[in-house]
Design a protein around this nucleic acid. Sequence first.
DNA 1: CCGAATCACTTGAAGCTTCAACTAATGGCG
DNA 2: CGCCATTAGTTGAAGCTTCAAGTGATTCGG
Lengths: 158, 158
Amino acid sequence: MAREPRWLTPDERDAWLSLAGMLMKLPAALDAQLQRDAGMNTFEYFVLTGLSQAPGHTLRMTELAGFAGGSLSRLSHVVKRLERRGWVRRELCPGDGRSTNAVLTGAGWDTVVATAPGHVETVRRLVVDALTTAQVRQLRDIGRRVLDRIDPDDPSTA
Amino acid sequence: MAREPRWLTPDERDAWLSLAGMLMKLPAALDAQLQRDAGMNTFEYFVLTGLSQAPGHTLRMTELAGFAGGSLSRLSHVVKRLERRGWVRRELCPGDGRSTNAVLTGAGWDTVVATAPGHVETVRRLVVDALTTAQVRQLRDIGRRVLDRIDPDDPSTA
DNA sequence: CCGAATCACTTGAAGCTTCAACTAATGGCG
DNA sequence: CGCCATTAGTTGAAGCTTCAAGTGATTCGG
């Protein structure tokens, strides 16, 4: 038998609605800027950024999927699109025949360099510059706690 | 000529990555619970909840779209699905021939009543119970500031 | 009171994500 | 060695969202 659920208090509901609003609107706002200025979405941007930071601009598909926070299937489809646009190239992994390496091309690197400033400006405008220094730290701690609840094993939380 | 962008400081980057992590993982985690336990996604849940709170369990499509935070087109498709499942019914608006009223059916109400406790428990488990009382208030304030940046005209921000 | 603009939606197509099924390579173990 | 489970990735279909275009109803300006 289900117990009476513990409903949210008014303060808790306000906080949740506030977070839920961000969950609904921030991704769309970030996507809009990237789509308009660079013809890509946030996930594609994460993929390109991940590769641009990796040694040799190369990452195995599974590692890249972990970094970008998406499924391997999703990444596979996305990399196919990025490959069609000439931003990424696939290579067989020398050591392990099962693995595929995704490699950022020169054109892909140029795209990241051209796109990053606008993206950072948007993050500043919508989030960072809206907050006080104290709130920036609070947000970091809040996010860590929530992420730890979602997936305690994720090392990026620690 | 583009000025050198103002890159994020380490503190700011930590906070942003923390928020970005929530943006990537929280919706999936919430959807997973709702999908598993009630065969619906978060947006559909918001739509049903919105109707359940409205007088007469009725709302015009545009109002409902505003509440649920989606486009009218998206809502139209979703209401069609919910109608097929017998949870919502469409009616012509008496006063204005352009408008459509979405009405929660009895079965829809039963579904909301059955689904709400599990959803609230999930929100508690993943967010609210992970935070201190102070953090709950901080999150509310942070969210309000961010939402105000995204859409200063949205009254739900105030 | 008539035509043009606006409003409130709906629709179909295109794009993206998820899901389940599949292929191929590798590691383990008897 | 040889088989089986596991790992890594791909694929196609189905589902959801977005986008652009379209349909009526209403309002507003003259």
